[in-house]
Design a binder for these strands. Structure first.
Lengths: 205, 205, 205, 205
DNA sequence: AATGAATGAGGGTTCATTCAT
DNA sequence: CATGAATGAACCCTCATTCAT
């Protein structure tokens, strides 16, 4: 977020950034706006204003508002999902993987604040929703496979269970963010709930 | 939905409704619009047009767009939450109550179609979000009490558990709506997950 | 053009016009703008500004810019084509009809100034072009029939001849408007050219 | 059109062109764009993009967009008007000259496709319109002189007649382009119409 | 000679909201 | 109670043009 607000040279001219820098800058600004006011607050105009740049410049970097939002979604979720996957891969058990995943999510959210909650929950505008659905599918499949393998749950059930478990993560984060529990307590509770649920589905199912 | 579209007398005049009827009519129309196109589709103009009434009339019944939406939210969630509570109250066990609640939700969603899904998920405009938060608090507290009492889970944990469980319900409905499982399978899976999780939290916690 | 520019009451408020009046007013303003600067000069914004009315009001009367332009085209060409047809119908010979038509065109153009020339010539935006093509087809067919009947010209040739003749009318008007000839001289020359051409095509063809 | 698209050396560098070559290349690209989408499609940006060159470079060769379009107009109409004049000069009679001119127009249009039609008809932006008027004046004078000399028509009338005749040529081309007649039929009809008209004006006038 | 980042103005369109009638 | 004309602000998007490098 080093470039978020002021990007002006001493001469008062807006800084002339390279293409990649400006693009990141736009995404930084958009992230801040989502964090503050949700998707609605992200306007090509509001982004430009906050970036200290002229109205039309955003269109040199993103085809339209939807694509800007989609790019933001991909950047931010990627920064969470990659380390989460890595951390989970290091663990042997489902319980360990759940705990590791939640741990990474807490880490990322600690930095990103309300941004991710909004990114994941908001009623989505077209292009973002597409990305969201794709991401959801990918992650749910991974969890479903783990559940099926470790607990012997049949495929259909394990897919539903994965969906149910994952859909709660934003709420867990929200509980933490609003002071309804410590990170450790919430991690423990959520992990145990998932593990117990998966084990139970495997026993009788 | 009895008044949704045609509210004209045989003389072609707009029907003369009582204040309360007119208000309900507005909400009926708004409900239909949310079901079709989400919150965004609810415009003071679109509502008036569909209600067969002049543009400014809505303001005689609702302070502004936000309040119209909030009133809709309260009416619709109330029509789900009251029967859900009643049904749950008739059951003895947590498992029974979960199953009963989910059953009512499926029933209502079957009738109301996409309306409720949208009402519960959408990125909320201010006044709606207020109501949403309040409703969430009330319902979570009820579930938390049940969990605490039946499984001997401490208060903080049972509140987190209730929040986690409830946050998944929209996803369960979505799975059903998108054909990812039958009503029976999903009810069973979800109920077992909740019950197993609660039981586990009670054992060690 | 009585309403063209100032439509304000003594109190300084913009006049509150009936729907039909306001619509006509918009078309009057658009006509003036086309006359001055061609199609490009007609902007929803420029029209509103000249009409002394807020930017968005035009959209309460026309779906979009294209439809405003199309409505203008229909109104203006209709005011020329209806009397032209009537006048032509009163004449017996092709020569008489040509003369009568050109006479009406001159009459209308005298009032409307450069408006019609621009309306008929401009590279058309979609919706206008549609109307233009339709009008052209109708009028050419009428002339073609006359030529075929009076001079015994075969159908294909008479259709081409009608198209050729009619395509020159805007230029005739332009010659007059730029002082390259009197109304009488130009009418006489054009009428004789058409008649001689038609007769010739009938003789050998 | 030899340079239209690919102007890169094997090394992938943009080809190093002489100033004159680069200018021609810009005009080639602009011509292609007009042919495809009319004047509106010619953007300093679209031209640069298609030419494989940076956005600002056009301004090193043309003062502004209007001058680029004007240069295109002059180049393209010149390539039609010079052979047309040559061909007409080889003929003795007015009839022959008309036929020869129309022949060249057909030839050029066959190659250039929709480009010329658009160039000649489009609602003109300032600088282009200037050139168009000048060209019109020159060509009309030449035809007027022919009519005056061969048929003994007085000067004013022959100027009007020339204007009338020439204004139909784009329509003749359009008839052909839209399949409303063969090249031979249309040439014959148009030529006879012009000749008969001129002869008639000479007789009584 | 050439690049490409950036501006700034204009124009299309939608809506919540107000208010004269 | 009800209408519907009108406002005004916000947004989306495109482009001619400039200018630092």
């Amino acid at each position: 977020m080093s470039l978020t607000d002021e990007t002006r040279t001493q001469s008062g001219q807006p800084a002339r950034l390279t293409r990649a820098q400006r693009r990141e800058h736009f995404l930084d600004v958009a992230a801040a706006l989502v964090a503050e006011g949700g998707f609605e607050a992200v306007t090509m105009e509001s982004v430009a204003a906050r970036a200290g740049v002229s109205k039309g410049l955003g269109y040199a970097y993103f085809d339209n508002r939807g694509e800007l939002l989609a790019a933001l979604f991909e950047r931010e979720t990627g920064e969470m999902d990659r380390p989460a996957t890595t951390a989970a891969d290091r663990e042997e058990t489902f319980e360990g993987k759940v705990r590791a995943t939640v741990g990474v999510v807490f880490d990322v959210v600690s930095q990103k604040g309300p941004l991710l909650a909004r990114l994941l929950r908001a009623e989505a505008e077209g292009p973002v929703d597409e990305r969201r659905r794709k991401r959801q599918r990918v992650i749910e499949q991974r969890w479903a496979r783990l559940i099926a393998e470790e607990f012997g749950v049949d495929e259909a059930t394990s897919r539903a269970a994965a969906a149910v478990m994952l859909s709660s993560i934003p709420r867990v984060i929200e509980l933490w963010a609003t002071g309804k529990g410590s990170r450790e307590e919430l991690t423990e509770t959520y992990t145990r709930m998932c593990t117990a649920a998966a084990r139970d589905l495997g026993e009788t199912g």
